[in-house]
Amino acid sequence: MKKIVIIGPESTGKSTLCEQLAAQYKTIWVKEYAREYLLKNGTDYTFENLLDVAKGQLEKEQLAVDYWQPENKSKIDNLKSAIFIDTDMYVMKVWCEFVFEKCHHWILNRIVERKYDLYLLCNTDLPWVKDELREYPDLENRQKLYHHYKDIMVNQNVPWVDISGGYEERLGKAIAAVESI
């Protein structure tokens, strides 16, 4: 099974792209746990809350991975062997460091342990869409965050592709990247 992670700043189309790719490949995708957590607990979060969010994200990812185990084969015969993951521990690292200027060691250790097959880094060229959870409407902060992600991508070993353009162009680039692996 291939694990493909979609990362990037808020409001860059990560969830939309995950949903589109899952539909394209007739598979499942892992939703970003932070949205669920913040909707339930509010947006006044602490450094410790981000550790809870990170653990919740990995629990959701593990549930998806467990779904692909041999005992579920009859349920998934028609599905492709890939899952799309909206957010990973790199996102948690950037979030911690951007807001609190430090990161939990637990998150850093999970980055080292987790293995993925491809990263799709969503660029900031889509218009920012307001919702009750988003914190950075200004392009300057969104671009700063994007460059944090890009620095991480350049300095790790998993293949990655920059995803930019309109929604259709992004999907086309993402499909080409997935097909390449």
Rank of each mutant, 00 (worst) to 15 (best):
E168P: 06
N72D: 03
L145N: 05
V53H: 03
K14A: 01
I6T: 06
V161K: 07
D44T: 08
D125T: 06
R114K: 09
T124M: 06
D125V: 10
Y146M: 07
I163Y: 11
K75V: 09
I107E: 03
Y149T: 02
E169D: 15
E36P: 07
M1G: 02
M1C: 01
V53K: 01
I85E: 02
L171K: 14
K93P: 00
T12W: 10
P9H: 11
P137N: 08
E101C: 14
P127F: 13
C122M: 09
Y33L: 00
I76M: 11
W68G: 01
K173A: 11
I7Y: 04
G13N: 12
K14L: 05
I152V: 11
Y45D: 08
W68A: 04
D88L: 02
K31P: 04
D125P: 06
C122A: 08
L38N: 01
D131Y: 09
L118K: 02
T46G: 04
K150W: 10
D117T: 05
P70S: 09
I111F: 04
M1A: 07
V53W: 08
D162E: 15
I175Y: 04
L79G: 06
R35P: 03
C103P: 11
V65G: 00
L21Y: 06
S74G: 04
K55T: 11
K144I: 15
P9N: 10
L79M: 14
E71M: 07
D86P: 02
I6G: 00
V161D: 04
V178R: 00
D125N: 09
I163E: 09
L21H: 06
Q62L: 10
D52Q: 10
A174R: 03
L108E: 12
L121G: 01
S74A: 11
K73P: 02
S81I: 00
L126R: 00
I152F: 08
P9Y: 12
Q57R: 00
L79R: 13
Y25A: 09
K3T: 02
C96V: 08
E71F: 05
R170G: 12
V91Y: 06
M89E: 02
P159I: 02
N141E: 13
Y33E: 01
L120T: 03
H147D: 14
A34D: 04
K40G: 06
